[in-house]
Nucleic acid binder design. Sequence first.
DNA 1: ATACTGACCACCA
DNA 2: GTGGTGGCCAGTA
Length: 105
Amino acid sequence: MQRRITDVIRSLNQGEVVSYGDIAEVAGFPGRARLVGRLLAVGGQDLPWWRVVTASGRLIPGQESRQRRMLADEGVEVTLTRVVRSPSGRFAGQASPSRSRRTDT
DNA sequence: ATACTGACCACCA
DNA sequence: GTGGTGGCCAGTA
């Protein structure tokens, strides 16, 4: 029952934007951001993939047009290439990826 | 089995 | 801000 990834993505609400790494971490796979990316790349059509961006706030390569439109429609401030701010989620207020990784705590 | 690539991420220069 | 490097996991040749 590893569908945690999809569950997490499905649980995203309107205007909530998070990064691949965040999803992976929340799902219980810290550092497995690429798995999330690949998952969406192949079968994420049933999921709100547009609420997922890179850790830098960049939109998904190749889907920028769609994603920008979807996010803008949900009240998220986005430019041609990245998310500026979202009402909720990781990019609420500031879009600065935390460097809390590496080096065990 | 090795090697390369990818809807990624973080560190360092 | 950009560019290079290492790491991660899975798919494909």
